[in-house]
Design a protein around this nucleic acid. Sequence first.
RNA 1: GCCCCCAUCGUCUAGUGGCCGAGGACGCCGCCCUUUCAAGGCGGUAACGGGGAUUCGAACUCCCCUGGGGGCACCA
Length: 403
Amino acid sequence: MTVRVRFSPAPSGELHVGSARTALFNWLFARHEGGTFLVRIEDTDVSRTREEWVDAIGDTLRWLGLDWDETPWRQSERIDVYLAAADRLLASGAAYECFDTPEELDEMHAARKAAGLAPGYDGRGRDLSADDRARLAAEGRPRTVRFRTPDSGPSTFTDVVRGEVTVEWSTISDFVIVRSDGSPLFFLANAVDDLEMGITHVVRGEDLIDTTHRVLAIRRALGSDQVPLYAHLPLILQADRAKLSKRHGAVAVEDFRARGVLSEALFNYLALLGWAPDDDREVMDRAEIVDAFSLTRVTHSAAIFDDKKLEWINGEWIRRLAHDVIVDRIRPFAHDRYGVGLDETLLDAAVTIGQERASTLVALADQMDFLFAGDGFTVADTVWADVATVEQPAAVLDAVITH
RNA sequence: GCCCCCAUCGUCUAGUGGCCGAGGACGCCGCCCUUUCAAGGCGGUAACGGGGAUUCGAACUCCCCUGGGGGCACCA
């Protein structure tokens, strides 16, 4: 079987490190297995989608070094496919039409919660007659399509990292697959696409583990007896053990990029969050990681994102990369900061110092402050005071190089 | 509230019944190198959440508790 995986981001913001890690693991798995890595934009919710995010996510993936194999899919261009599937589910009785108003649903949720149940749905629309439905539709009530879940019995699937995952159907109520505005929802689109695109392995965050039962149920109702192999990755948490959020500093890949984290370093660090090779290596390049990667070695518990360790790996990479490569990457920073009159010789000298001591490209740029500005040095306090007091740039350079 | 998942140093992790009086890395603390900062070298600090059970023997198996996380939407 040829491995076929996909990364399916919702374009509702910049790519954050959690999603990037998911993309990375999918990519690593595909490359390791010689399989295919696809990108599928899950933009069925038009209100949350912005075209600029679609482009931004692509740029970020490219920057990280994650290349995809086929033209990216857009779910927004396949709406009719999902609705056709919904019609089939309706025809077979696997799904049914509902005409509940938002107010009625709110009331029901409150009542169910008070009764110690999950918000869910009480199935009130399940057994409406054709006449009932026609009448309610005629009243102008909103029409949605719900998937009918089994009343009882176990739902089990095999997860590569977690083993057998079982849940009782009675805890999962009927859920909406087509909105009142006629657009399809995640569960439907996801099930249809994974099926039609021949996805063999679904690698995603653990926050989606509970949705698997529903997606699998839709697949079966659609007539498929094929089940992709799932692998739910442990979540990435903040230092306070809460889910990563924008309130707590950098979470978007672009934030790290702007901060001067090298692509190689973030790739390397992210690979180590939730996975470890079977030896002691930590600083590894892309090829080494692809070679060593395996889903069976993915860890089980949530990991805290550690900036310190990222900084360390970044420093390793700054020192490891060829001098010219760093000069090329630092040039935009230097240019922004010091303008057109950029002195290439000094830039070169700054990188020399930077590779020796900096952990991030921004810190490296700080080294340049005193080289370019002469007296205004921001290098850690009194560091290199004697060198910085030399007035002639040439002498500074000399001192730096011979130091 | 209900459901699911998870549980080794502060953090990332190795570990799949004896090789573990628990290994590596980051961080932190010393010392060395160095005119100073880094980098580097050397050393140190620090963990199997608790209780049962199985076993000749449990970090590794099972159960309970506790703790943490996630889910329960006309978001994905």
